[in-house]
C-alpha cells in the first residue's frame, strides 16, 4: 500500500514536470510574441507592419522561398526517384549525402556559398563578366534556401516510392501505356502526397531561414533584406515590438502551412 502510494506520487510529479517543461519551453514563448506585438495596441502594431521596408521584406521572402520550393520540387522528385529505382555506382554515398544540409550548421552552408560564388571566385567572376550578379543579390538567397531545404522533398518522396507496388506500374506498361503515360498516370499520383508535404516543409523552412541567407544576401533594405534578417535588425536596434509584429506575420504563415500539412497527412493515413 505504502509502495503504491509512493509510486503514484512519483508518477504524478513526473507527469507534471514534463508537462510544465513542455508548456514553459514551447507554448509560453509563442504566446509571448503574440501578446508583445499587441502590447501597445493596434496602432503601433499596424505601424510596424505597414512600414514599407517591413512588408517588402516579407513579400521578398515569400517570393524567393516559392522559387526555391519550385526548384526543390523538380530536382527533389528526380533525385528521390533515381536513388530508389536505379542501381548505380555511388548510390549509397549519394543517398547518405542527401542529409548533409541537415547536419551542417547553416552558417557554414552560407559561408560555403559565399566562397564558391562570391567575388574573386571562379563562378562569381564568370557570372559577373556575363552581367549576372549572384552573391549579395537575389540568386544567392534562392541558392541558400535551396541548399538548406534540399533534403525535404527527397526524403518525403522516397518512402512512398519504396512502398509502391511495382505490379501496378508493370501492369500499366504491359497494357500498352507508354513510359511517359505510366509515369504520369501511375507513378506520379503515388508520389504526389510526398511531393506536396515535402514542398510545404521546404517552403516553411525557406521562409524561416536565417543563417545561410544572412551571410550571402547583402541585406540591403528593400532589396535583398529578407524577413528573418529584418527581424534580427529590429532586435539589434532595440525595437523588440517592431520585431515581434513582423514575426507574427511570418509565424502565422508558418503555422498555417504546418496545419495544412497535418490535414494532408491525417487524410492520407485515414484512407
Amino acid at each position: 500500500m505504502n509502495y503504491m502510494l509512493r509510486s503514484r506520487w512519483w508518477s504524478f510529479g513526473f507527469r507534471s514536470a514534463i508537462m510544465l517543461y513542455f508548456i514553459i519551453l514551447i507554448v509560453l514563448p509563442i504566446l509571448g510574441v503574440y501578446t508583445q506585438s499587441f502590447s501597445l495596441g493596434w496602432a503601433p502594431f499596424w505601424e510596424s507592419v505597414s512600414d514599407p521596408l517591413a512588408w517588402k521584406a516579407v513579400l521578398l521572402t515569400i517570393r524567393l522561398a516559392l522559387i526555391a520550393t519550385v526548384i526543390n520540387v523538380l530536382i527533389g522528385t528526380m533525385i528521390g526517384w533515381v536513388l530508389i529505382r536505379y542501381r548505380f555506382f555511388g548510390r549509397r554515398i549519394l543517398n547518405s549525402l542527401v542529409d548533409l544540409p541537415f547536419a551542417l550548421p547553416t552558417a557554414v552552408g552560407g559561408l560555403m556559398i559565399l566562397l564558391l560564388l562570391g567575388p574573386g571566385s571562379f563562378v562569381g567572376d564568370a557570372a559577373q563578366r556575363l552581367g549576372f550578379e549572384i552573391v549579395f543579390h537575389e540568386p544567392a538567397i534562392v541558392i541558400a534556401m535551396l541548399f538548406v531545404t534540399f533534403p525535404f522533398v527527397i526524403r518525403a518522396v522516397q518512402p512512398l516510392l519504396e512502398e509502391m507496388d511495382k505490379a501496378e506500374e508493370e501492369a500499366a506498361y504491359t497494357l500498352g501505356a507508354s513510359k511517359a503515360k505510366t509515369f504520369l498516370r501511375v507513378i506520379f499520383p503515388t508520389m504526389l502526397p510526398g511531393i506536396l508535404s515535402g514542398a510545404m516543409l521546404a517552403f516553411s523552412r525557406g521562409l524561416a531561414e536565417f543563417g545561410a541567407v544572412v551571410l550571402v544576401a547583402g541585406n540591403i533594405p528593400g532589396k535583398t533584406l529578407i524577413a528573418s534578417v529584418y527581424i534580427f535588425g529590429e532586435v539589434e536596434s532595440d525595437n523588440p515590438q517592431g520585431a515581434a509584429a513582423v514575426s507574427i506575420i511570418l509565424l502565422t504563415l508558418s503555422f498555417l502551412i504546418l496545419w495544412l500539412l497535418n490535414v494532408i497527412q491525417s487524410r492520407r493515413s485515414g484512407v
Partner: peptide, 11 residues
C-alpha cells in the same frame, strides 16, 4: 520547426 530561429531567439 515552423518558427524561424531568429524568432525563437526573440521570444
Amino acid at each position: 520547426f515552423a518558427v524561424s530561429p531568429v524568432i525563437g531567439g526573440l521570444m
